[in-house]
Simulated scan of single mutants.
Amino acid sequence: MSPDLHFILFLLLRMAIAAAFVVSASVITERSGPAIGALVATLPVSAGPSYVFLAIDHDAAFIAQGALSSLPINAATIVMGLTYVVLAQRHSMAVSCCSAFAVWIAIASVIRLFDWTLAAGLAANFIAFGICIPLLSGYRHVKMPLVTRRWYDIPMRAALVATLVAIVVSTSSWVGARISGIIALYPVVFSSIMLILHPRIGGPPTAAVLANSAWGLLGFGMAIAVMHVAVERFGSPVGLFLALATCVMWNLTLWWNGRRAQRIEA
């Protein structure tokens, strides 16, 4: 087998694996309502496979450096979410989504200009989430109408995440760790939620899913920080595992606290 054919086949396999992750998460999200769906949406279903495949191709130093760029990008994602949530209450999908995407691209463009440290990345997250979470709290509780899946929903989500993985894997060697870390954190799941649900159920219910994602996304940011530290000390496999464990435990804690609050109110 020629090296080029081997690369193409291996890339297609990676894309298929990543697509399978996001499709599974999407089905769970649709069937569980905005609160649980938001927690599933903030699991690393797109960034996780991207980083796993980066770890296959690059050493631990590359992964650790990429995580430093990914950390402030997580803050950009919550600002993007807030932009969409506010605009979606009164405006069309085109206005809401395009504005949200423009905000993310603008912030990411600024982030790539700097060499980030762990402390600076954490500070960016705490400031962004400290501002955005209170502002999003008023948009969380919206009755979700029945969602009927269309034939193109899952293929579109799979195509989005597969394309992201293909870009990250195929360009990482020449764009470097910093840009790879930024690209890996592009909010594929948030984008698919906005593009698929908004025209079907309206802006406010779709915005409720993203508003409920704020606390889960905060935990995702902490998982990135854990990955950076753990990869530097213990290597990529251990670092990636600890990052995933951090995400899962954080979201399970949020779910348990939500259930307990419901029992108290009842």
Score class of each variant (00 low, 15 high):
residue 122 L to R: 11
residue 119 A to I: 09
residue 113 L to Y: 10
residue 143 K to V: 11
residue 133 I to L: 06
residue 118 L to F: 07
residue 153 D to P: 03
residue 149 R to Y: 08
residue 127 I to L: 08
residue 130 G to Y: 00
residue 161 V to Y: 12
residue 130 G to I: 00
residue 134 P to N: 01
residue 119 A to K: 06
residue 118 L to C: 14
residue 112 R to T: 12
residue 137 S to A: 13
residue 154 I to T: 04
residue 116 W to N: 10
residue 146 L to M: 08
residue 131 I to F: 10
residue 124 A to K: 04
residue 153 D to V: 09
residue 126 F to L: 15
residue 159 A to G: 11
residue 110 V to S: 10
residue 130 G to S: 01
residue 157 R to Y: 05
residue 121 G to C: 06
residue 134 P to H: 12
residue 154 I to K: 04
residue 151 W to Q: 08
residue 158 A to D: 09
residue 123 A to F: 10
residue 129 F to L: 10
residue 113 L to A: 12
residue 139 Y to K: 10
residue 109 S to M: 15
residue 150 R to W: 00
residue 158 A to M: 13
residue 116 W to F: 05
residue 126 F to K: 03
residue 129 F to G: 02
residue 127 I to W: 05
residue 128 A to K: 02
residue 140 R to N: 05
residue 125 N to P: 00
residue 147 V to P: 02
residue 157 R to M: 04
residue 113 L to Q: 15
residue 142 V to E: 01
residue 125 N to G: 07
residue 141 H to N: 10
residue 110 V to K: 09
residue 151 W to D: 09
residue 123 A to G: 02
residue 152 Y to I: 02
residue 126 F to S: 03
residue 132 C to P: 02
residue 120 A to I: 06
residue 118 L to N: 08
residue 135 L to N: 06
residue 138 G to W: 12
residue 138 G to E: 13
residue 150 R to T: 00
residue 133 I to W: 04
residue 147 V to Y: 14
residue 134 P to W: 04
residue 136 L to G: 07
residue 157 R to P: 03
residue 163 T to F: 15
residue 113 L to W: 14
residue 127 I to N: 02
residue 148 T to Y: 08
residue 139 Y to V: 04
residue 121 G to I: 09
residue 155 P to C: 12
residue 112 R to E: 03
residue 115 D to S: 14
residue 161 V to D: 13
residue 132 C to I: 11
residue 110 V to G: 15
residue 134 P to Q: 02
residue 139 Y to A: 09
residue 118 L to I: 13
residue 114 F to P: 01
residue 125 N to S: 11
residue 140 R to C: 05
residue 129 F to H: 02
residue 126 F to E: 03
residue 150 R to Y: 00
residue 156 M to E: 02
residue 119 A to M: 13
residue 143 K to S: 03
residue 136 L to K: 06
residue 144 M to W: 01
residue 148 T to G: 06
residue 132 C to E: 01
residue 152 Y to L: 09
residue 150 R to F: 03
residue 143 K to R: 13
residue 151 W to K: 10
residue 162 A to D: 06
residue 129 F to W: 04
residue 146 L to E: 12
residue 125 N to D: 14
residue 119 A to V: 14
residue 131 I to A: 08
residue 114 F to R: 04
residue 161 V to I: 15
residue 118 L to M: 15
residue 120 A to Q: 09
residue 133 I to R: 06
residue 138 G to M: 14
residue 138 G to S: 07
residue 135 L to T: 07
residue 116 W to E: 09
residue 142 V to R: 14
residue 124 A to L: 09
residue 113 L to I: 12
residue 115 D to M: 07
residue 128 A to M: 05
residue 137 S to T: 12
residue 120 A to C: 05
residue 117 T to P: 05
residue 116 W to T: 06
residue 147 V to E: 00
residue 150 R to H: 07
residue 128 A to C: 01
residue 133 I to N: 02
residue 154 I to M: 14
residue 145 P to W: 05
residue 157 R to V: 06
residue 120 A to T: 05
residue 136 L to P: 05
residue 111 I to S: 07
residue 152 Y to P: 00
residue 119 A to P: 01
residue 156 M to N: 06
residue 150 R to N: 04
residue 123 A to R: 07
residue 142 V to C: 04
residue 132 C to S: 12
residue 117 T to G: 13
residue 125 N to F: 03
residue 112 R to H: 13
residue 133 I to A: 03
residue 159 A to H: 06
residue 141 H to R: 03
residue 116 W to K: 11
residue 157 R to I: 07
residue 130 G to F: 00
residue 154 I to W: 14
residue 125 N to M: 08
residue 126 F to D: 01
residue 116 W to C: 10
residue 110 V to Q: 10
residue 124 A to Q: 11
residue 130 G to T: 00
